[in-house]
Design a protein around this nucleic acid. Structure first.
Length: 412
DNA sequence: TCTGGGGTCCTAGGACCC
DNA sequence: TCTGGGGTCCTAGGACCC
């Protein structure tokens, strides 16, 4: 039987949540009704637009652009900083409502949820409008709900006219509702692929859909086949109740100032190693591959990685390898952003039992002791002396540890 | 005071082996 | 005299998502 899938998408999520929160605490202004954005701190060089109100959108302000540029478009723009704890709470509250409608729920991101409504009693349109209205009434923010027979089409549907709407996009509606859209509005067609497609005369989703499958595959390989299938409405992944296992853990930081010397670079790497180390131990995994990536002041990024003989979760090992990678790749120029990522993860119990001899083990006992202290008394209770007076944070990375939700990124 | 941070997946090329 | 070919592993880079 054909499925009924909902995609629930919070309208201007971060901005709406800020607006609701501020109204609850007596603010006379609804951020959704004025040109406003949620944005990072420019003085820390985090100055990009994370979310925008509809009035801000009318000034041509785009998510991801610099605040500097947004201010040129709208000088009296209201800018508020992000508060991720708040967004997590709002997201959780929404999911609690959704659980009343189906046990099959997939949190796709902090503000997007897939819900499998197949074989439920109440007619799906009634349920969708009820969900939408309840979220608005009970939680104060609005959502769009897209409905179809698969996740891809449901997601495309939720992107139609906003805010506070329910849309359907069933296979028989594809031709009329999806094919006329510009090809870049298709999920997984980004700016690079848009340019490629346009260069060969493909401008709409319909034109991609009608292109020859083998031609697209020989030209754009697997991603080409994927978007060709999507353009034809073909997608069949399950609404996953449980998150997939984590494949990599990484943290990065854009420094408030460029780093142009090895000593400071190493300190930054130590700070990041502390965070990724804590996180990998938290999920009880070991990593076989350590990757270091840097972005220089010209915004050029490059990376090196190393595969270890023995998977690790030791902060010192991560740091040592990251330092080696940095020393062999660094060209001596000013660095803006540092990033360490751990991958090829494996459960750690095997190694703990089998490697009785090993050097990493004592490290790990110490690491775990430090983790416990930091979890109990706060991160700052124990810091390495090398950071004192360095101007560099001893633990670097902005992960909200409690109540983690899966970030599924480009995978449905 | 101009451009974040956290992810997944794919491809290409070289090394190495038989 | 004229340099195969397939498979696997590793690394670097790049595409996309929210």
């Amino acid at each position: 039987m054909s499925k009924i899938i909902f995609h629930i998408d919070v309208n201007s999520a971060y901005l709406s949540w800020e607006a609701v929160y501020r109204l609850q605490y007596g603010s006379p202004i609804d951020l959704r009704e004025i040109p406003a954005i949620v944005g990072g701190d420019q003085s820390k060089r985090h100055g990009i637009v994370l979310a925008k109100s509809i009035p801000a959108k009318e000034y041509g302000i785009l998510t991801g652009e610099t605040i500097y540029s947004a201010l040129q478009k709208c000088p009296n723009l209201t800018i508020v900083p992000p508060s991720y704890q708040l967004y997590m709470k709002a997201s959780n509250a929404m999911v609690e409502v959704l659980r009343e409608y189906s046990p099959r729920i997939q949190r796709y991101s902090i503000d997007e949820v897939f819900l499998d409504y197949s074989d439920m009693k109440k007619p799906y349109l009634d349920a969708a409008y009820e969900i939408k209205d309840r979220i608005q009434k009970e939680l104060g923010f609005t959502v769009n709900i897209g409905i179809s027979s698969n996740k891809l089409l449901a997601k495309m549907a939720s992107d139609f006219k906003k805010p506070n709407r329910v849309h359907t996009l069933f296979p028989e509606e594809i031709k009329e509702k999806m094919w006329p859209l510009p090809v870049e509005e298709l999920f997984m067609v980004g700016s690079r692929t848009k340019a490629k497609l346009n260069s060969r005369g493909i401008f709409t989703i319909g034109e991609l859909a009608k292109a020859d499958r083998d031609y697209i595959y020989s030209w754009l390989k697997k991603p080409g086949l994927l978007i060709w299938n999507y353009a034809n409405g073909m997608e069949d992944s399950e609404v996953r109740n449980t998150p997939l296992p984590v494949k990599s853990v990484g943290n990065s930081t854009t420094m408030p100032f460029d780093v142009d010397n090895k000593r400071e670079a190493h300190l930054v790497l130590l700070g990041i190693s502390e965070m990724v180390g804590m996180r990998i131990r938290e999920i009880e995994q070991n990593a076989r591959v350590i990757s270091l990536s840097v972005k220089n002041s010209n915004f050029y990024s490059y990376s090196h990685q190393r595969k270890l003989d023995i998977p690790t979760s030791s902060t010192n090992t991560i740091y040592r390898v990251a330092k080696e990678l940095f020393d062999e790749m660094w060209q001596g120029e000013a660095i803006r952003q540092f990033s360490i990522s751990l991958s090829e993860l494996s459960s750690n119990d095997f190694f703990q039992l089998s490697l009785l001899d090993d050097y990493d083990e004592r490290e790990e006992v110490l690491d775990r002791t430090i983790d416990k202290l930091r979890n109990r008394f706060g991160y700052k209770c124990l810091i390495r002396s090398s950071f004192l007076h360095s101007g560099i944070h001893p633990i670097i990375g902005g992960v909200v540890m409690e109540e983690e939700y899966p970030m599924m990124s480009s995978k449905l």
